[in-house]
């Protein structure tokens, strides 16, 4: 009785079609759960959230130092850096660009450290469509292996002020 008190004997175990559906639903819900730990161990794409506290200025220093040592060129005035495979890479999110441009090798693994030196930003690699949150004060480490070659755009998909839609970057994979 939706609008009136139910009869005294309302406490009844589910029966018939209802019990069937609850059983089927529960099995499906358990499948939904198991898929995540399974993919965590077996899958190639995971968001493990590896991250460290980092001071904005300290992160800025690492980025600057990396540009000084690994710079191989420029595009539209923005330095391109080519880090060594297996090594650490620093990518800075700031209002309103991704700095610097990264040049990576296909099928090589990199530890890409991403942090923001101002507001929250959203790392969004296109047209690959991979998305990660970037926060000031957090060094978010993506252990990334590019599996396709080409030029990829990084856009920002977390609102970061009036220039948000102008915030772009590049990853070049050879």
């Amino acid at each position: 009785m939706s609008m009136h008190p139910p009869p005294k004997d309302w406490f009844q175990p589910p029966a018939g079609p209802e019990r069937l559906w609850i059983g089927v639903g529960m099995i499906w819900c358990i499948v939904l759960f198991i898929a995540m730990p399974y993919a965590h161990f077996m899958g190639k794409q995971n968001s493990t959230g590896e991250s460290y506290r980092v001071d904005k200025a300290a992160f800025q220093d690492r980025v600057t130092q990396q540009v000084a040592t690994n710079k191989v060129g420029e595009m539209n005035g923005i330095p391109i850096i080519e880090p060594s495979p297996g090594g650490d890479v620093y990518l800075q999110a700031r209002m309103w660009s991704w700095y610097p441009i990264l040049k990576l090798k296909k099928d090589q693994e990199y530890r890409v450290h991403i942090s923001s030196t101002d507001l929250q930003h959203g790392f969004s690699l296109q047209p690959m469509n991979m998305n990660f949150q970037v926060l000031p004060g957090y060094d978010h480490v993506l252990t990334l292996t590019p599996t396709s070659a080409g030029e990829f755009a990084i856009i920002c998909n977390e609102f970061c002020g009036i220039g948000h839609h102008l915030m772009t970057g590049r990853i070049i994979v050879e």
Binding site: Q126, P127, F159, G169, R170
Partner: peptide, 24 residues
């Protein structure tokens, strides 16, 4: 969104961005 188009975003053609970007 499944093509990667961001939410809360004014211009997915990125007119005026230093490094061009866009969607098909």
């Amino acid at each position: 969104g499944s093509y990667g188009v961001p939410r809360r975003h004014y211009d997915v053609e990125f007119a005026g961005a230093l490094l061009p970007a866009g969607f098909d």
